[in-house]
Computed example of a mutant assay.
Amino acid sequence: MGVAGLILGLAGVQIIYSQITSLNPRYVQLQKLLSDQKWKEADDETAQKMWEVAGRQQERSLREEDFEKFPCEDLRTIDNLWVKYSKEHFGFSVQRHIWESADVNSDFDKFIARVGWGITQDNKITIYGLNLLSFDLTIPKGQLPVAVTYDGGNITTRKKYMSRIISCDIGAN
C-alpha cells in the first residue's frame, strides 16, 4: 500500500471512529445488538436503558410521570438506532406513524392490533405477554420496541408513552 492508500485508509478509519464515538456511550450496546439484528435482546436493552435514564432500574417499569419527563434527546437516539438497523420496520417514529394513520387514528385498541401487541375480540382488548411475541422482521411493522411499555398492560401508561413520542416530535413528517 502506498502513502496515499495509507492516508486514505486512515481517513476511513477516522470517519468510522468519529461516527461511533459521536453516539452516547449509553447506547453503544443497543447499537451493536441492533446491527446484529438481535431484536429481542435489543428490545430488552432499550427497556433497561430507558429505566436507567428515568432512575427506575429497580422497579423495571416506567410510570406516566416518567414518560412525561423522559428526555427527548434519548428518545431520538434510541429511535434513530431502531429505524436505521431495522430499515424503518421498528422504532418509536414507526409507531407514531401507525398511531396517527387514518385507519388507526389514535385509537389504542386499533393500534394494539395493528402492531401485534394484542387483539380485540368482542370489543375487549387482550394484550399479549412478551413471551408470546416473536422477534424478527416478519412481525408487524412497529411492534418493537415494546418491553419498555409492558407493565401488565396498563393502557394509560402506554398512551402517555405515545404522547411523549409526539411531544418530542419523534418521527414528525
Rank of each mutant, 00 (worst) to 15 (best):
S22K: 11
V94I: 15
P145I: 00
E59A: 12
R158G: 13
L75V: 14
Y17L: 15
D36I: 02
I7V: 14
T157D: 04
E45R: 10
G12V: 04
F111R: 05
E100R: 14
F111K: 05
G12R: 11
L144S: 00
K84C: 02
H97F: 09
L81D: 07
E41K: 06
I20H: 12
F70C: 04
T138G: 03
R96A: 02
K84D: 04
T149V: 15
Q57V: 15
I78R: 08
Q29N: 12
I139Y: 00
V53Y: 00
S101Q: 06
E45H: 04
V146I: 10
S167H: 05
M162K: 01
D109Y: 06
W39M: 12
H97S: 14
L133C: 03
K110S: 08
W99S: 01
Y161Q: 14
D103W: 13
D44C: 03
K160E: 13
Q14D: 08
L130M: 11
L8R: 09
W39V: 13
N80F: 04
S61E: 12
N123P: 03
A42P: 09
I155R: 11
W99V: 02
L33T: 07
I165G: 05
Q29E: 13
N24Y: 02
W39K: 13
V146T: 07
I7W: 01
I15W: 13
V83R: 15
Q19I: 11
W117S: 12
Q95E: 06
L144Y: 00
D103M: 08
F67Q: 05
I139W: 00
T21F: 09
I78D: 03
L130T: 12
R60S: 10
Y161A: 12
F90W: 06
Q121I: 13
S22V: 05
R164C: 00
I166R: 11
R96Y: 01
E64R: 13
S167Y: 03
S106H: 07
G2A: 07
A147F: 06
R164V: 01
S106G: 01
L132D: 09
T126R: 11
E73L: 14
D169F: 13
L62Q: 02
N131A: 08
I112C: 10
W117I: 13
E73F: 07
D66M: 00
R26L: 08
I127W: 09
A147T: 12
N154A: 10
D36Y: 06
G142P: 01
K159N: 10
E65W: 03
E73R: 15
A11D: 04
V53H: 01
L8Y: 11
K110W: 04
A42Q: 08
L30K: 11
W117N: 11
V28G: 06
L137A: 06
L132A: 09
V3M: 07
G5Q: 12
T46V: 07
P71I: 00
N80Y: 04
W99P: 10
R63Q: 14
I119S: 08
K38H: 06
M1C: 03
E64D: 07
A4D: 07
R76A: 15
Y161I: 03
D66I: 00
G118V: 07
G2S: 15
F70S: 03
S167Q: 09
I155P: 05
P71H: 00
L75H: 00
E65I: 10
T120R: 14
F67T: 03
D103P: 10
Q29P: 06
T138R: 10
I127L: 15
